[in-house]
């Protein structure tokens, strides 16, 4: 029996985080940052290397405790009762960068079941969740019986993501889930995450460098610069401000640049195109018209 789920939103309120406090190596990773991730959508969190993205990921599920400020889910401070922080980790799933290195079980099935097992769920519920997570990550039934160490890099990545998905968190944070994969692998993993979000209607945050990917798979984009939010909005809102993006070390998707070059060359294509698919249709439309006319 599925009850109608409320999609949780998660926020940082005036958070400062310092590393190695009390040693000569002390350093502020985040300085008084406030931001909110809306519930029920996929948000793409972008920023250059060292902008504090990965620190934010670990703050969101309570692996790191803010030096100052609060992390709140639906307005409630997650550190209100530090003893219950492991409960927060069940509500906020976190998939680390290169998560394939965390696999350890004898079979893929048992590895995916590790998280749900730690939650103390009944056996049949665990099986149901494993099957569900396997579906979204494209893990076939024969793969479930294999050792995770027999799989290819891309397959391991799916298993690791499935392991967190199977915990069915209200909020799922993924740190560069497609890093180092070929275009097809990227498409399958990000597509799977999107299909999962559309069915579960939960809150997903994807940390990524890739403008191309985020333009396709994220509903909203958030751009970080030097520890604060420099822009937040839809792909269209963000990519309108090219100078802004350049300043924070990111750039528009290549296909958008290509379309603008076409415009400059006097070809009447529409601006505001961020994906190769859209560009394909637009170019066909323009040139098709020409041929007809």
């Amino acid at each position: 029996m599925e009850e109608a789920k409320h999609a949780a939103s998660i926020a940082l309120e005036n958070v400062t985080y310092r590393y190695s406090i009390g040693t000569p190596f002390e350093k502020a990773a985040l300085q008084n940052i406030s931001l909110q991730f809306e519930g029920g959508i996929i948000t793409g969190l972008m920023g250059h290397t060292g902008s504090g993205k990965s620190t934010i990921a670990q703050l969101l599920n309570g692996l790191l405790q803010p030096t100052e400020g609060k992390v709140t889910i639906d307005g409630k401070d997650i550190w209100e009762d530090p003893k219950k922080i492991s409960q927060i980790r069940f509500r906020v799933g976190l998939v680390f960068q290169y998560p394939e290195y965390q696999l350890f079980e004898e079979t893929v099935l048992r590895d995916i079941a590790y998280g749900p097992g730690n939650m103390g769920l009944p056996q049949e519920e665990i099986q149901r969740r494993v099957a569900d997570a396997a579906k979204f990550t494209g893990i076939t039934p024969d793969m479930l019986e294999k050792s995770p160490f027999e799989l290819s890099g891309g397959q391991k990545r799916r298993v690791a993501i499935a392991g967190v998905m199977a915990m069915d968190p209200e909020i799922l944070v993924l740190d560069e889930p497609a890093a180092g994969l070929d275009p097809r692998g990227r498409k399958e993993i990000l597509g799977g995450i999107r299909a999962y979000q559309r069915e579960k209607k939960n809150t997903i945050i994807i940390i990524s460098h890739s403008m191309e990917d985020m333009a396709i798979y994220a509903d909203k984009l958030m751009v970080l610069d030097h520890g604060h939010v420099s822009r937040y909005g839809t792909a269209h809102d963000i990519f309108c401000h090219a100078e802004d993006l350049k300043r924070v070390g990111l750039s528009r998707p290549q296909i958008t640049k290509f379309i603008m070059e076409l415009q400059k060359a006097g070809i009447p294509v529409e601006s505001g195109i961020y994906t190769v698919d859209d560009a394909y249709h637009e170019v066909l439309r323009v040139f098709g018209e020409k041929e007809r006319g």
């Binding site: 599920n61 692996l63 492991s86 976190l94 998280g115 939650m119 967190v164 915990m167």
Partner: peptide, 13 residues
């Protein structure tokens, strides 16, 4: 450190 964090995120105690 990284692996410990990753397993904690999966509910390891």
């Amino acid at each position: 450190d990284k692996i410990i964090s990753a397993q904690k995120a999966r509910g390891a105690d």
